[in-house]
C-alpha cells in the first residue's frame, strides 16, 4: 500500500507518494520547475541548482533543490518567488555563458528569464550535469564512464580505455546529453557565441501527452501554461 503525503506547492495542494522528491511531485502534478540534471528514476544529485525552491518552515524560508528534498506531510514550497526567479536566472546565465553551444542550455536560459549575458562567453562542450555517468549501465555494474579531477578540472572520462571493454553501445548517454542538441542556427564557433533569445525548444519528436506536461524535457521553463490547470492536484492511484 503506497503511503501518500500532502504538500503545498505555490498555493496548490498536491498528494505524493512518500519518498518522492518535491520536484517529481511537482512535475507529476503539472507544476513545471526548471531542471537540467534530473534523470527520471535515477538518483538526483542537485548539481545544476536550477530546481531550487523555498522550503517554508516556521515562517523561515530555506532555499534548497527540489530534486533532493523528499516530500513530508504539511510541507510548504514556493517555486516562483521573486528571489527564486532572480537566483534561477543568474544560475541559467552562468550556464549559458559557459556552454552556449546547445539548444537545451539556450532554452533553459530563455525560459529562466536570461535576457543578456554579463560574462564573456566560454565554449565548453560539457556542463557536468552527470546524466551520462549516472545512467550508464556499463557491464555487470561496472561503468566505463566516471567523473575525474576536481573543481575547474572536473570532467567526464572513460579512463584506461575501458570503453572498449565495458561500453555496450546502448546510446543512453548520447540521448540524455544536453550538449548534443545543436542550436537552431547551427553550432557556434569560438568567438561567435551569443545568447540566442529566439530559442525555444521545438521538440517535434515528442508528442504532447494529455494530462502530462512533457515540455519539461531539458528543463523547459515554468508557468508555461501549456497545460490544462484542471489536471493539477489530482491523486494518483
Amino acid at each position: 500500500m503506497t503511503q501518500y503525503v500532502n504538500i503545498n506547492v505555490d498555493g496548490m495542494s498536491i498528494q505524493a507518494p512518500k519518498g518522492t522528491s518535491v520536484l517529481d511531485a511537482a512535475l507529476d502534478s503539472g507544476i513545471c520547475i526548471p531542471h537540467l540534471c534530473r534523470v527520471p528514476y535515477v538518483a538526483d544529485i542537485g548539481a545544476c541548482r536550477l530546481c531550487i525552491v523555498e522550503n517554508v518552515l516556521n515562517g523561515h524560508s530555506k532555499i534548497t533543490t527540489s530534486c533532493t528534498l523528499r516530500v513530508k506531510e504539511g510541507m510548504v514550497i514556493r517555486s516562483n518567488t521573486e528571489k527564486i526567479i532572480k537566483l534561477r536566472r543568474n544560475i541559467a546565465e552562468l550556464l549559458v555563458a559557459e556552454a552556449p553551444n546547445s539548444r537545451a542550455v539556450q532554452d533553459v536560459a530563455k525560459r529562466c528569464g536570461v535576457r543578456d549575458v554579463r560574462y564573456s562567453f566560454h565554449n565548453s562542450n560539457c556542463i557536468l550535469c552527470g546524466k551520462c555517468v549516472r545512467v550508464c549501465p556499463g557491464t555487470l555494474g561496472v561503468k566505463p564512464l566516471t567523473f575525474v579531477g576536481r573543481g575547474k578540472d572536473r570532467r567526464v572520462e572513460a579512463p584506461f580505455n575501458l570503453k572498449t571493454e565495458l561500453c555496450n553501445d546502448c546510446g543512453r548517454c548520447i540521448d540524455l546529453c544536453p550538449m548534443t542538441v545543436v542550436p537552431c542556427l547551427g553550432a557556434m564557433k569560438t568567438g561567435e557565441e551569443h545568447l540566442c533569445v529566439n530559442c525555444e525548444a521545438k521538440m517535434d519528436f515528442i508528442e504532447e501527452t494529455p494530462g502530462l506536461c512533457v515540455w519539461c524535457y531539458f528543463g523547459e521553463g515554468f508557468q508555461c501554461q501549456r497545460h490544462d490547470l484542471g489536471t493539477r492536484g489530482r491523486a494518483r492511484a
Binding site: 561496472v142 561503468k143 566505463p144 564512464l145 566516471t146 567523473f147 575525474v148 579531477g149 576536481r150 572513460a158 579512463p159 584506461f160 575501458l162
Partner: peptide
C-alpha cells in the same frame, strides 16, 4: 601508476574507474 591502480582495484574490490576517480580527486 596505472598498474598500481589495477592492483588496488582488484585487491579492494573497487571498480577501476572509481579508483581512478578517487586518485584524481585528491
Amino acid at each position: 601508476s596505472p598498474s598500481s591502480m589495477r592492483d588496488v582495484s582488484e585487491a579492494l574490490g573497487v571498480p577501476l574507474t572509481e579508483v581512478y576517480s578517487v586518485a584524481s580527486f585528491y
